[in-house]
Design a protein around this nucleic acid. Structure first.
Lengths: 262, 262
DNA sequence: GGCTCACTTTGATCTGTGTCAAGGCCTGTT
DNA sequence: AACAGGCCTTGACACAGATCAAAGTGAGCC
């Protein structure tokens, strides 16, 4: 339902930037041939909504370059981002006719698409495709469950620290800064971060300021930060596998109760 | 690491209560033969932890009867339930050695298990198994994303109403009560509900009392409630696809901002 | 029947984060 | 240089839900 402006030509999959990680990663050269024939590229501009939740969705696709988000919306407009799509991530639900989320381009983006029916047919004949899609989906599921822990139980400060550390971990372009630190570009506006973290934009801004004040992060430009001490940041994120003394089992009285978010 | 007390005998899969919905649902009789040979049953008592997060997990399995939960824990003890396992649900991550979550039996439970290695091998040779597992995983992913919306953006009252309506929808044993209402058994303690919803036990209790006071639900016994008017409950849950007037696009000023949970 | 123990409810108070509102800071335009 | 329009930050205040505390309920046991 949008434009279709292929902005560059990967005519063959050989040189595709996501060859190693996409749904096609396990396919051998022979299997790539039919895929090559039915795929097509689609590009969208930053800010554009690629798919509306509830609309018919007749294709599936992979992000080749750029970043997109999956969001869900409540009747009254409250929004929650439920996924962040980076290059090689897959969009679409084989076997389902309608989109379950809004998909929005955060940056200019290029997708490698296949119409749903041919994709489903091909999947039935190509175990390598099926296997890889299962792997990807299982990883997504783990990631979204980790996010549930963040949304349900972390404080605003921990949420921000977690988001930054996740971006730092996934951002291939993150490169070491001067004194052993790491510099990253935030691909999201404060509002998008708020939608991701289940916070308001103001709280996001305040917590970023607080982390800056406490020198956990250094603000280069609004969308560019450096992390002088990654361990410190991970500590702030709260999910270091064990805060210090190794507890578990033992006297249940020592185990604090859940919650603590408010 | 626990007991292995098969408490009943489904020696063949034919009569298995989850034959229609489990990972094996798409397998034909021929494919069932090798599965039949490598599967084994395992049962656990209510309250027992079946798997500890981080421990080696050398099997995968499906819930045959009973209910279990997946939970994640932060270093300081804050807990978040990330999945509720009902009969036919699948546990385990092929291709991963360690469990990512604690798995705990909520009721007495029987699992149909297969050691991981044989399962993986068989999956490579049995597309029907692979296909069904992909379906199950995609559905899980959708469910967990819906839950992210709940955790990030719903109020306590909406969370409780959502949980009750989800249980009502999934509970096969839910049967019509007298005047068109539905009666269900809550399979969870208040504390478990709190862990699921990202709330405290006290807030759960208060909101249940409030819904009772407002006659959205009727409390039979503490763990048994009836829903006189399902539509009313769904309205309280907040995610009716559209609160009334069909908005979207149009004047952006009319779209309220996100958040509203506080 | 009375006791225990686990679970649940209810009350009083506190606090983290939402809400409302005002400015500040870039980047592009004329 | 001045202006406009997006973000982003900061402040003051409100309130939903957390926390601390105590009492109620009900099933199992002697």
């Amino acid at each position: 339902m949008d434009q279709m402006t292929p902005c560059f030509n990967y005519h063959d999959c050989e040189n595709c930037p996501i060859r190693e990680r996409g749904v096609c990663a396990r396919c051998d050269d022979r299997e790539l041939v039919p895929l090559n024939e039915i795929k097509y590229y689609r590009s969208y501009e930053a800010g554009q909504t690629m798919v509306w939740s509830g609309d018919a969705m007749d294709f599936v696709g992979s992000v080749v370059t750029g970043i997109a988000t999956l969001t869900q919306t409540l009747g009254d407009g409250r929004r929650q981002m439920v996924g962040l799509l980076l290059p090689s991530d897959f969009v679409g639900h084989p076997g389902r006719a309608c989109a379950a989320y809004d998909v929005t381009a955060t940056t200019d983006i290029v997708m490698c698409c296949v119409r749903k029916k041919p994709f489903e047919d091909m999947m039935l004949q190509t175990p390598h495709l099926l296997q890889r899609l299962l792997e990807i989906t299982l990883d997504e599921l783990d990631a979204s469950r980790e996010w549930m822990l963040l949304l349900g139980r972390k404080t605003a400060r921990e949420k921000i620290a977690s988001l930054i550390s996740i971006i730092a971990r996934r951002d291939a372009s993150a490169h070491a800064a001067g004194s052993g630190g790491v510099t990253i570009a935030l691909p999201l506006s404060r509002e998008a971060m708020a939608d991701y973290l289940g916070l308001t934009l103001e709280t996001v801004s305040r917590q970023i300021s607080a982390l800056k004040h406490d020198q956990v992060i250094v603000i280069e430009r609004k969308r560019r930060i450096t992390i002088p001490d990654m361990d410190r940041l991970l500590e702030e994120a709260g999910d270091d596998t064990d805060g210090g003394m190794p507890v578990r089992e033992g006297d249940p009285k020592l185990v604090p109760r859940s919650s603590a978010r408010q």
